[in-house]
Amino acid sequence: MEKKEYNKIVDKYTPSEPKLKNAFIAFIIGGFMGVLGNFLVDIYSYYFNLSTKDASVFMIITLIFLGCFFTCLGFFDKWVNFAKCGLIIPITGFAHAMMSAALEYRKEGLVTGIGANMFKLAGSVIIFGVVSAYLFGLLRLFVMGG
């Protein structure tokens, strides 16, 4: 009887276990990405005497460089498989998408390969971002007055 109840509980929780684990890992890794971003902003604004706004631009460029560089070295795909959204949602995911498209289509040539396909995965972010920012900008202009 006790064993049956135990098995029931196991059955109840087994399918949802990877989801919980994935969510937990994404939360932790994503959180550390946020801490790293804030740390870089502090470092840049302290050592280069930049305003927070300029330092955050430097931070985004640094994270994009790291994302591209580790994708090239082959680490990043494994990390993305492990952390999933913890690394896809931060700006490194954008860099990873562009870098892997560029690497993948490189053998098709510079223009028809890299040039034509670099935005294959990341282009939707820019296109939907621009269109939605335009529409929401219009909304904000009429609702809030700019």
Binding site: F27, G30, I88, I89, G93
Partner: peptide, 23 residues
């Protein structure tokens, strides 16, 4: 940042959307 990633992961796990959709 953790909560945003957590939200993304929950959407990724429980729907058929790809990471491209989620970003």
């Amino acid at each position: 940042c953790g909560l945003v990633c957590l939200l993304g992961q929950i959407i990724l796990d429980n729907t058929k959307l790809t990471p491209g959709h989620i970003t």
